[in-house]
Write a protein that binds this DNA or RNA. Structure first.
Length: 653
DNA sequence: TTTCGGGTTATAT
DNA sequence: ATATAACCCGAAA
């Protein structure tokens, strides 16, 4: 009897676990492809992911964030395809959609504010720039006013200038660089561990190599991989490669016990484990951006590796332990995140408490560990890291549409189902805990119902239909409205309408090869610069400042400006509405605004900052380079030098 | 042309 | 009135 239950649940559990591997692998793969700028492949992998997400997937603690990151990157990637829509409910451009995701990420996960602000700004700027490039100036203006309100923002002024001049040929906003920036940003948020499946595959390949003599090595091997899941009981998990991990796990357990008493040692333990893992993972794929995050590295591995370590055991335990920490994503990772947060406000409100409860109740081996780790990470890696799920509870967020929907639905379904473990769990731990249990349950049952095996195999087929996959995904979402979760995910990952990739891309891609996506230099052309005062004139020579037109050339810009400025002050000049507004704002903000017309113009904080960066970048004395690089249009080299001197006097530098 | 250092001037207090 | 940041000027490289 129990056996049967186990059997059936095992199948479902196994599928979840395997799907987790698949998802995990593809997440890493997608990132890698993005990194390598193989965008077509990236999109295909994204589609694969979205397809897999339709199946029940066991989520690891860091999966929600990773998925969100992928969604973010997918939108960034399609950023120039304005006709693409990711959210059927809200017809916004991909980048706007990315912005929404970023916002949700900041709410659901702990992200370093600095990184965050920078990413936000870049993204907002690119949103506007993209509209400009596509000649949608109205939209650009709307976005500008919506997202870039800071009048002192130099880039804002530049954009404003482009808009007013209807200039969509600016070379200052390089999408390519923007992509890289966003990539760097997300890489700082989460370490993409070497996927278990990747390691396993490598091992397998390596083994084949060794065993070369073996005949149908290929087939055998493959069988191993497939079979395992099917017969969980017998430790199928092939994965010989897993041996090492297993050890780690046991160690981890011991470590956790120890930790229970003294958390301080955790780091050490971690490192131990880490080193062990590395032995295995030394295969090191290039996937993990060897870049920065070493901390994350540690953190992440703990979370996942241990689990993979004993894949075979997973299924059975999954119900109890792993799940606690690793909720089932099933069809929606989003949900996962939300589940923790909103579904049961209870949890969200009492983040810490909930955690504790989790631990206790989870009382199980693995899960709690991960959680602990998470905390540890939090402490050690204040940044964002992985432990997203746990962190998630941080704040409930109802604002996000998706979140709301997902959460609601999940809750519903969850109640209905439930299963074995769950019931027990609930009874034991009434309020706080339920959240999690619910979350997983929901998915578990429903999907399990569907042809497990078929689906189970599906992932293997994935390469087959790339394009179709995406479309199918969409279909599903629409087809099975009730399964919001799944729908959500798909929507999130794949755009609603898929263009033929290359088409729209073309125009945008050409952009520029400037050093920065946003190069102030443009100023020269655009004539719009940070100082609103000066910029306006140049900006719209024709319309706004007729008088100015007489001196179209910027040759003696400084002197001209001076006089112009004076005139402007005297009210001799008439500005267009927008310009006026903008100008006025500026003036109000900076009374000390005067160009060289004999009056002194104080250095703004922004200018100062740029100067600092400039000196840092080019070295002191290279005022000319700094000036042109940062577009200090209305500052002369000498001005820069003087300012620097002043700063030194002030000991600001 | 660009950088540098000393001198001058506008501005804040 | 004074201090100082911003600006100007001429020399040097």
């Amino acid at each position: 009897m129990a056996a049967k239950q186990c059997a059936s649940s095992d199948i479902a559990s196994v599928e979840r676990v395997v799907n987790r591997w698949i998802v995990d692998y593809n997440l890493s793969l997608a990132l890698e492809l993005f990194k390598k700028q193989q965008f077509k492949d990236f999109n295909e992998v994204r589609d694969v992911l979205s397809a897999v997400m339709n199946r029940p997937v066991e989520a690891t603690s860091d999966m929600p964030l990773k998925i969100r990151i992928l969604q973010f990157l997918a939108r960034i990637n399609d950023g120039e395809k304005l006709d693409l829509g990711y959210d059927p409910d809200m017809p916004v451009s991909p980048l706007e959609s990315a912005l929404l995701i970023l916002e949700s990420m900041t709410e659901d996960f702990v992200i370093p504010q600095q990184d965050c602000e920078y990413a936000f700004h870049s993204l907002k700027v690119m949103i506007v720039a993209t509209f400009i490039k596509n000649g949608k100036f109205d939209k650009a203006t709307e976005m500008l006013n919506k997202h870039l309100m800071e009048p002192a923002d130099r880039v804002r002024n530049i954009l404003l200038g482009l808009i007013s001049r209807k200039n969509k040929t600016s070379k200052n906003f390089c999408f390519q660089l923007f992509r890289q920036e966003m990539l760097a940003f997300v890489q700082r948020l989460c370490y993409f561990d070497v996927p278990f499946s990747f390691r396993a595959a490598q091992k397998l390949i390596a083994m084949r190599f060794e065993v070369e003599g073996s005949d149908g090595a290929d087939e055998n091997d493959e069988e191993e991989e497939i079979i395992p899941p099917l017969n969980p009981q017998r430790d199928p998990v092939p994965l010989k490669p897993c041996k090492p991990p297993i050890i780690q796990r046991s160690r981890l357990e011991a470590a956790y016990k120890a930790l229970a008493e003294d958390e301080k040692t955790f780091v050490q333990l971690e490192q131990e484990v880490e080193t062990e893992i590395q032995d295995v993972g030394d295969l090191h794929l290039e996937l993990p951006s060897d870049s920065e995050t070493e901390q994350n590295d540690l953190c992440q591995r703990k979370v996942c590796s241990p689990m993979e370590a004993s894949p075979a055991e997973q299924p059975p335990q999954t119900n109890g332990g792993p799940q606690v920490q690793a909720r089932l994503l099933s069809k929606q990772h989003y949900t996962v995140a939300r589940l923790v947060t909103e579904p049961d406000s209870q949890f969200s409100s009492q983040y810490s408490t909930a955690l504790e409860e989790l631990e206790t109740e989870a009382g199980t081996k693995n899960p709690p560990k991960t959680q602990d780790e998470c905390r540890e990470k939090e402490q050690q890696c204040p940044v964002s890291d992985d432990e997203t799920v746990i962190l998630t509870p941080k704040r409930p967020r109802r604002s996000k549409k998706t979140a709301g929907r997902a959460a609601a639905r999940v809750v519903e379904s969850s109640d209905s189902e439930d299963n074995l473990n769950k019931k027990e769990m609930r009874e034991e731990t009434p309020p706080s805990h339920p959240n999690q249990s619910n979350s997983r349950n929901s998915e578990t049952s429903e999907q399990g119902a569907s042809g497990l095996q078929d689906d189970y195999i599906t992932p293997e087929k994935r390469p087959v239909k790339q394009r179709s996959t995406s479309s199918s995904g969409k279909k599903r979402s629409s087809g099975t409205p009730k399964q919001n979760p799944s729908a959500l995910q798909e929507d999130c990952i794949t755009p609603v309408k898929r263009p033929e990739k290359q088409p729209s891309t073309a125009p945008s891609e050409k952009k520029s090869k400037t050093d920065h996506n946003i190069t102030p230099e443009i100023v020269g052309e655009t004539s719009v610069t940070e100082s609103s005062l000066e910029s306006p004139p140049t900006t719209s020579p024709q319309q706004s400042v007729p008088q100015m037109s007489s001196t179209p050339e910027q040759a003696s810009s400084s002197t001209k400006w001076k006089s112009l400025y004076k005139t402007a002050k005297e009210g001799k000049v008439t500005w267009t509405s927008d310009e006026v507004d903008f100008l006025q704002k500026e003036t109000r903000c900076n009374e000390s605004f005067r160009s060289n017309s004999g009056l002194k113009r104080r250095w703004t904080e922004e200018e100062t900052q740029m100067l600092k960066e400039g000196v840092k970048k080019f070295g002191e004395g290279n005022w000319c380079k700094i000036r042109s690089y940062y577009g200090f249009k209305e500052r002369t080299n000498v001005n820069l030098k003087d300012r620097w001197r002043t700063m030194k006097n002030q000991k600001l530098v």
